[in-house]
Computed example of a mutant assay.
Amino acid sequence: MIDPVILQQGSDWRAQAEVFDEIFFVFLALGTLVGTIVVAYTLWNVYKYRDDGNRSDEEFDAPVVGELPTGQGGPKAKKLFLSFGLSAIVVISLVVYAYGLLLYVEDGPDTGDEGDIEIMVEGYQYGWAYEYPNGHTERGELIVPADQRIDLNITSRDVWHNFGSSDLRIKSDAIPGDHSETWFAVSSEDVEAQGGEATYRVECFELCGPGHSQMKSQITVLPQDEWEEWYAGTGNSSASANVQTPGAGVTAPSGVSA
């Protein structure tokens, strides 16, 4: 249903946005199917049991309010318990399916220590600062590579904020003195579809003051080789040492909080 993002390490996994899109599609498709069946069956019964003036009161088996038919082989009981059984199967299946995917979204794919980039995100009135593993800091724009999991460690220097991007389906609190974590990834196919450089808007989803509506930023996703070239030139002598060949990933140097 969803094309997985192929990591440079060779394992298959999906980005958060793709997982949420799949959950939405499954619920939409199943809800439409069940709704169509229920409405069609209701209309059929309305037509079948309409009052055409030819049925006597003695022939009408009216239901009794508050009484559950026990059946004893009757058609009403069979329909009732069949509908209960099918409903239970559908609901339980959806809960198990969605819960498993949401656990995946919460924990993220298990790619090991190699290949992940952890970036510190600090909110302030009214903007965002991004600190990379080599100590380089960007304000207003988070630049990351495609086909790689990006871990975000989010906090705030002043008041409560909420870091999020609707397009990437990520949203996490930024609280002074506390840290929250989330992750995202963008495939190289999505980058190519946007002309070789994908951009996503970042907003604050927590009312944080008079400048809240202007607290916007941008995530820019570059192809892996272009990002490595940019990262190597961020002005820190340790940057080049932390940029690995494709598949090796980026790790934080010792002594730097990431």
Rank of each mutant, 00 (worst) to 15 (best):
R55Y: 00
P246V: 12
G255W: 10
K79F: 04
G177L: 03
W227L: 04
G112M: 06
D178V: 05
V91M: 06
T220I: 11
E141L: 09
T234E: 12
F81C: 02
S213A: 12
H161I: 01
E229M: 08
T251R: 13
G211R: 06
A146L: 01
K171R: 15
D51W: 07
G71H: 07
L222K: 09
S93H: 00
T32Y: 05
I23E: 02
F27M: 08
V34S: 04
Q125Y: 02
E203V: 12
Q194P: 02
L33V: 04
G112A: 12
E192W: 01
L94G: 14
T220W: 02
Q214F: 08
T182L: 10
Q16L: 12
G235D: 07
S237R: 12
G71M: 01
V191G: 09
I92P: 01
D190G: 07
H179L: 06
K48H: 00
V26K: 10
T137I: 15
K79P: 00
C208F: 05
Q194W: 07
P69N: 06
F24E: 15
D107F: 14
A198Y: 13
V91K: 00
P4I: 14
T251M: 00
R169M: 12
W128L: 04
A239L: 02
I89T: 12
V46D: 11
E228C: 15
Q72L: 05
Y104T: 13
W13C: 13
S257P: 05
H136N: 13
Q16I: 14
K79H: 13
G71E: 11
D158Y: 11
P133Q: 07
T234P: 02
G164V: 05
L30F: 09
Q148E: 05
V90G: 07
D107L: 14
I89W: 07
E181T: 12
L80W: 03
E18N: 03
S83K: 10
A185Q: 02
F60D: 11
A193S: 12
V202T: 13
L152V: 06
S180R: 04
E59I: 02
Y97K: 01
H136K: 09
L28E: 10
S240Q: 12
D225S: 15
N236V: 11
H212S: 07
F60W: 09
V19E: 00
L28V: 01
